[in-house]
């Protein structure tokens, strides 16, 4: 199960036949295992990693440190969930240390980020303060190095 998840985490496009052969299982077993993992929400979704800088799409990523007042009986759950619901928010983590939530958002322009923070985030009741950091360049994301050229420089035949 762990090995299957490890493979899918690296490449969700392996097909069931490939996975079955590689793991020494039958296709039925793999199909059932994946279905179970999906049903149990261990596998939450499948995505594609895109280097948007290579396209003409404008995108700005910002990391926002958010301080909040935890709510009685709810702790951070409710406010975190509320923030997470905005489609602009790509990630939302509860943190230890000097602030409470890390919110990562993606927008087309700096202005849109600023507007989102000012109009959506900072105005929430339990939000005490925000501090916004813009990403200038991505070198590595989700375990993948962006600029790296995958070149096989081995000789063609080695005995």
């Amino acid at each position: 199960m762990k090995e299957l998840l490890g493979l899918l985490e690296k490449n969700s496009r392996y097909d069931v036949e490939q996975l079955a052969v590689m793991l020494g299982k039958s296709t039925e077993e793999i199909k059932a295992a994946i279905k179970k993992l999906e049903d149990e929400k261990v596998i939450i979704g499948y995505k594609t990693l895109i280097d948007w800088e290579k396209t003409d799409r404008d995108a700005v990523t910002a990391l926002i440190e958010v301080k909040v007042t935890p709510q009685r009986g709810e702790g951070f759950e409710k406010i975190a969930e509320r923030i997470s619901r905005f489609p602009e928010v790509k990630s939302c983590f509860l943190m230890s240390g000097g602030f409470d939530l890390t919110v990562i958002i993606e927008e087309k322009t700096l202005k849109e980020v600023a507007l989102f923070v000012a109009e959506k985030l900072a105005v929430l009741d339990s939000v005490i303060s925000t501090s916004t950091h813009f990403v200038l360049k991505k070198y590595k994301d989700y375990g993948t190095i962006f600029a790296q050229e995958e070149k096989d420089d081995r000789e063609v035949v080695v005995l």
Binding site: D152, R154, E155, V156, V157, V158, L159
Partner: peptide, 21 residues
Amino acid sequence: KFFDLANEIKDVISLSIGEPS
């Protein structure tokens, strides 16, 4: 002869290498 041929042809999928990838 096979060596030379393998080196000439472009865009080969090489499964003829005795070393780690």
